[in-house]
């Protein structure tokens, strides 16, 4: 059996263990569950896989009120009632009023697709369990018409989770798991280079140094991550700042720290650091 292997894209750098996990999921046709700190590129990974393998990406952002049924299909009763009253279209044909959700759409699509179930932990506790059957069998039945929708080509399923809630064991068991570790300095500088190719080496070094120093501070509620760093460097470039020093006061700190408590914690930590020298 052969399959196309995932090797990362120009915009998305991977590690061998990430590639291995993705390829496991592709070969074994299991969902890939990606966890990691917010801002480490979980959603971007799905986009990169879709780009690399040339698949259409179907994005299903999960919210607190999302139900598994919403992913399959919705029966648009209101439209049907409306049409029956005002006479637009064939009301007898109930199929016209079945609208596929993201999961249903990925099954019904003509070619292979990539279904991204984003932030699965946001939904109700039972949500992942409700999806198990459909993801296993890759088919579901539309209750209103009795039609069975079977995936012609098994979609690649990528599921992301922020690790806020524990997911059920039965669900975890069926997934290939990968935890995106926080990049080290070396990988981080390569990642920043991808996004800001013309950045000066001096500013890159300095900003990385300050960035990791801030991440190491105790008592932060939300530590800044890759996406914040990339945004922050973009702001620095726009403002024409050529040098940053943690001790000299950090420009545009709001791009890195987004909670008031964290800004206070940062101010306290830096003033503590200065006091002995003064």
């Amino acid at each position: 059996m052969t399959f196309r292997r995932f090797k990362g894209t120009q915009k998305y750098l991977t590690s061998t263990s990430l590639e291995s996990a993705v390829n496991c999921a592709l070969a074994l046709e299991r969902p890939l569950l990606v966890r990691g700190e917010p801002g480490t590129g979980k959603t971007q990974l799905a986009e990169a896989i879709a780009e690399d393998l040339g698949l259409r990406l179907i994005h299903w952002p999960v919210k607190s009120a999302t139900r598994a049924q919403d992913g399959l299909y919705v029966y648009d009763t209101v439209q049907r009632l409306y049409d029956s009253r005002f006479g637009d279209g064939d009301v007898k044909d109930i199929r016209r009023y079945i609208k596929y959700g993201p999961l249903g759409e990925s099954f019904a699509a003509a070619g292979r697709t990539l279904l991204l179930i984003d932030e699965v932990d946001k939904a109700d506790l039972e949500f992942p369990n409700d999806l198990l059957h459909e993801l296993d069998r890759m088919r579901f039945t539309v209750g209103e018409t009795g039609d069975e929708i079977v995936a012609r080509e098994r979609p690649v399923v990528v599921i992301t989770s922020n690790a806020e809630k524990e997911l059920p064991d039965a669900f975890l068991r069926r997934c290939v798991f990968h935890f995106i570790e926080f990049p080290d300095r070396e990988l981080m500088s390569r990642i920043v280079r991808v996004h800001h190719p013309e950045l000066e080496q001096k500013l890159l070094d300095e900003s990385l140094r300050s960035f990791y120093a801030i991440r190491d501070l105790d008592g932060l509620r939300k530590r800044p991550s890759t996406s914040e760093l990339i945004d922050w460097i973009a702001v620095l470039k726009r403002a024409g700042i050529a040098s940053v020093e943690l001790e000299q006061g950090m420009p545009f700190l709001g791009a890195l720290l987004k909670r008031e408590q964290d800004l206070i914690a940062f101010a306290e930590a830096t003033s503590r650091g200065r006091r002995p020298r003064a």
């Binding site: 263990s17 074994l28 798991f177």
Partner: peptide, 30 residues
């Protein structure tokens, strides 16, 4: 699942390949 993955050659015949495959399949939470 690991047996299947090895049959497909996902570990590329190396121990570190096996490590990554086994980790992706056996570990379910960080």
């Amino acid at each position: 699942a690991i047996a299947q993955a090895l049959q497909l050659g996902l570990h590329k015949g190396r121990l570190d390949g096996f490590y990554e495959v086994a980790r992706a399949l056996c570990v379910h939470r960080e």
